[in-house]
């Protein structure tokens, strides 16, 4: 396609035509896609956006790493809506989580962001690709109702509506305007409240039981390093060094960053002295950690403006100071 504006909505046309579709970008291209992330959220179009994060703002640091699009991924389009964002930290996980991203997009009918960073994006490692038959695929939730009985945005019990495909005789209407369950524009307070509320509520399971994370050494931890993406691999080194120095450090790696796994962080907070949050930005997900910890432990940011990864010593220093 000619640009990211086009790519980000062409995929949605393809989805309503019956295909699965995704698009990939970095930096300013992700900014250009914001409008259609909102369109996908509003029209509940299952699709996947891959953002290989670089330093910004603007053209910033092409081909150099950062993790500074995390808030943009969540809040970048206007209005209230929810998305799912996943943060792989290896080529294998890029493969695995791409499948997960498609599956979650179909299950919850939301745009799913795969939030890489330049390091993970350019990394060369062994990747095991399983047989196609061994891959779990969540099928599109096509309705079983006949045309006439089917209402395009009538949710099922899990607050997610079933879908149809253009050309199957349903004569349906999709709009980015606030719409009623028929899909017709309905710009009033009640429809706005019920539809936008549902867009957020359907993702509630990801704040807790459906959240994806990787943890280690949490049982006895006095300091927990909360990290994601490439930074989690640097953090692992710092955790190991801290343990060697006798500080009981643990790992909480965020995999599903949005919706934020706040119930997990909230449960962990009273059990530890501090959480250390290294990020390749000047403070984004740390705000979520602080909000979930709610003062029940110290929360310490280890910022990095991007361009390279952290020095593990910087994270180690923060762990040691937090443990005091």
């Amino acid at each position: 396609m000619e640009d990211e504006l086009a790519a980000s909505i062409t995929i949605q046309g393809a989805v309503w035509g019956g295909a699965k579709a995704f698009t990939v970008t970095s930096g300013p291209g992700f900014s250009l896609m914001m409008e259609h992330i909102g369109y996908a959220a509003m029209t509940e179009t299952p699709c996947v956006f891959v953002d290989v994060q670089r330093g910004g703002p603007s053209t910033g640091l092409p081909t150099l790493p950062a993790q500074a699009d995390m808030m943009q991924a969540r809040w970048g389009s206007h209005g209230d809506y929810g998305i799912i964002a996943l943060c792989p930290n290896s080529p294998q996980e890029c493969f695995d989580l791409a499948i997960t991203a498609f599956n979650l997009s179909e299950e919850f009918r939301v745009p799913v962001m795969l939030m890489l960073d330049e390091c993970v994006g350019h990394m060369t490692e062994k990747v095991i690709i399983p047989d196609a038959a061994a891959i779990d695929v969540y099928p599109r939730r096509f309705t079983h109702l006949p045309p006439g009985e089917f209402r395009l945005f009538e949710p099922r019990e899990d607050k997610v509506p079933d879908m149809v495909r253009a050309g199957d005789g349903y004569r349906f209407h999709v709009t980015g305007l606030t719409h009623d369950e028929r899909g017709y524009p309905s710009m009033n307070v009640d429809t706005q409240r019920s539809s936008v509320t549902r867009l957020l509520e359907k993702l509630q399971p990801f704040t807790g039981e459906r959240a994806l994370s990787e943890t280690a050494d949490l049982e006895d931890a006095e300091v927990v390093v909360v990290s994601y993406g490439i930074t989690s691999r640097v953090a692992q080194r710092a955790i190991d060094l801290a343990r060697q120095k006798g500080v009981r450090a643990g790992k909480f790696r965020i995999i599903s960053a949005w919706p934020f796994p706040e119930k997990h962080i909230a449960a962990l907070a009273p059990k530890v002295k501090a959480m250390v949050v290294p990020e390749l930005n000047l403070g984004q997900m740390v705000h979520e950690v602080e909000r979930a910890a709610a003062g029940r432990c110290k929360v310490r940011l280890v910022p990095h403006a991007g361009g390279t990864v952290h020095n593990p010593e910087a994270i180690l220093k923060a762990i040691l100071e937090a443990a005091e």
């Binding site: 396609m1 504006l5 086009a6 790519a7 909505i9 062409t10 995929i11 949605q12 046309g13 393809a14 989805v15 309503w16 035509g17 019956g18 295909a19 579709a21 259609h36 495909r165 253009a166 050309g167």
Partner: peptide, 14 residues
């Protein structure tokens, strides 16, 4: 402005 790229995706898929 994006009717054409949306339509392009729809046509390609179906």
């Amino acid at each position: 402005g994006r009717a054409i790229p949306f339509a392009t995706g729809l046509k390609l898929a179906n």
